[in-house]
Design a protein around this nucleic acid. Structure first.
Lengths: 196, 196
DNA sequence: CTTGACCTTGACTTATCGGTCAACTAACAT
DNA sequence: ATGTTAGTTGACCGATAAGTCAAGGTCAAG
């Protein structure tokens, strides 16, 4: 089997934090390698291109997002509608902490890459599109449960889930532009107005 | 006065369309100059840096956005609440036409730059922040008129205006990620749920 | 203890990046 | 007509970009 190595993981972690804090284009392969303590040749041993690395980064984001935010938020230990509030609160705490650590509110990891690269790299656009659809699926399932529990009477669950997601995505980009996590707290309550 | 030239305008127009279609980082000064039919030396005669050029591009976006979308949309020839629908429709038509022309839905010109550069260039972030506040001001004034006309009973006009803006911003980024202008049509109706 | 797969290295390529500059040219005001 | 000023040019800078490659090193399994 040859030898093993954690270089791939170190590259992924470095790329994830660097690209999130800045942007895809602003972070070079070189810098990622330096932070990971790896030479560029090793980088291209693990990833065929910077674009492919970014696809892997998106997958890592997604796994962590499920583990640390989505699954805890939408766990069925509380009534469905309250889970949305818990979700928004976890997102708020994430950005608040992120700003404490780095001094900046960096926005949505997926939305950032979609904004920057959608018109240039279809693989990345489609990957983000898929992740978005998965998040919306969480919303949809939860909304259905809320409806069945009589917590709301929602006719168009599909579209409403997408509207809820769009609203949060918009809040986060406004928060990033104002570099202020309190925007999340300010605008979160209106979330429920989108549910009839 | 020395000689005159429209080179500055040509540079601005080229930069505007190129950066909107792609991204700040992906478009080089060289390419902007080539499209404008100008040498790089001339570029730096008019703009001290690429970042400053982008600030000027943002101002041009803003002037055009007011002329072609905001002012027509929020003209008081129809009841206030209907003006929001007219606004959303103009935004839809813009992205629809933009996709016909270029094959891609390019998103929000301001949001794109804010997403890409907010953590790296504070001048650009603050410029976008200011433009956002101006757009929200349109919303706010219109919401006030709607409230006074008895079309809605909105208590927190400030926050609601910001929520409305965030929602639209989110819709546009979802539409960009799916590369589909119909997302705007699909999610626009829910806009009114955000108004009590 | 050798084989072979896995990993690492560093030098390299080609291209482009944002930005500078001194010399030059054209047009306007007087 | 001429001086002044605005605009133009092309060569140039150091830095860095993504990506390549041949060679060598290291580990685990047989």
């Amino acid at each position: 089997m040859g030898r093993t190595s954690d270089a791939k993981e170190r590259i992924l972690d470095s790329a994830q934090s660097l690209i999130y804090a800045r942007s895809y284009a602003d972070v070079g392969v070189q810098e990622i390698c330096e932070k990971a303590g790896v030479k560029k040749g090793s980088f291209y041993h693990f990833f065929p291109s910077k674009s492919d690395l970014t696809l892997a980064v998106l997958e890592q984001y997604w796994a962590q997002f499920q583990t640390h935010i989505l699954n805890p938020a939408f766990n069925n230990d509380i009534p469905p509608l309250k889970r949305f509030a818990r979700f928004q609160n976890l997102v708020f705490e994430f950005h608040k902490q992120s700003k404490v650590d780095t001094g900046k509110l960096c926005g949505c990891p997926y939305g950032n890459l979609a904004s920057e690269l959608s018109t240039q790299d279809d693989h990345i656009r489609l990957k983000v599109k898929h992740i978005f659809s998965e998040i919306i699926l969480y919303f949809k399932n939860n909304l259905k449960q809320a409806s069945e529990a009589g917590e709301c009477d929602c006719v168009d669950i599909d579209t409403t889930s997408r509207a809820l997601f769009a609203y949060i995505e918009g809040i986060v980009i406004l928060a990033k532009t104002e570099n202020d996590p309190n925007v999340l707290k300010e605008l979160s309550p209106h979330f429920y107005n989108l549910i009839h």
